[in-house]
Amino acid sequence: MSTFRRFRAMDMFRFNNINLDRYTETYDLSFYLTYLSSWPDLYIVAESADRSLMGYLMGKVEGKKELWHGHVTALTVAPECRRLGLGRGLMDVLEVASEKTYDCYFVDLFVRPSNVVAIQMYENLGYTLYRQVIDYYMGDGVMPTEYANDMRKALARDVDKKSIVPVKHPVSVEDTFFA
């Protein structure tokens, strides 16, 4: 069973059971701390009944006018905690905050096309492919260089669902930056 709560800097001392998984990146401290100091309510961790960490989601809000949206920066679940619906639960917290606290138009995320399991989960949550981003993921010796699927889900504020109208042609990484 899990408790969802805000991630704390002190959690970094014990998130290895999640981060030792080869597909989870361990970033420099300032990356985590910047998210905490900027969007503490969008950085959520799931903790088990025995107090070990199970997974976490790092999110942010960005963009202007109709591009104001919530973004999933990282979503990762410890190997032994998969198939429990934790990913869905963590996404739910971000979506609720994006809609109710930040009044966003949509939520978006990037995922490797090869990560079929994750894409399936996002589709089940209502996300659709918005566009592809050329060479978004750079090879690091473990994972190959790959396109990204930019997936989006419209929130209540986007009444006409304009934000999720697919872009036909792949875009470059620069096109994904929000001022």
Partner: peptide, 18 residues
């Protein structure tokens, strides 16, 4: 620097934690 950011952003819940 991140402690400064927390004050700057008004995310006071981080001060003690950081």
């Amino acid at each position: 620097q991140e402690l400064e950011s927390a004050y700057g952003n008004g995310t006071y819940s981080n001060i003690t934690d950081f």
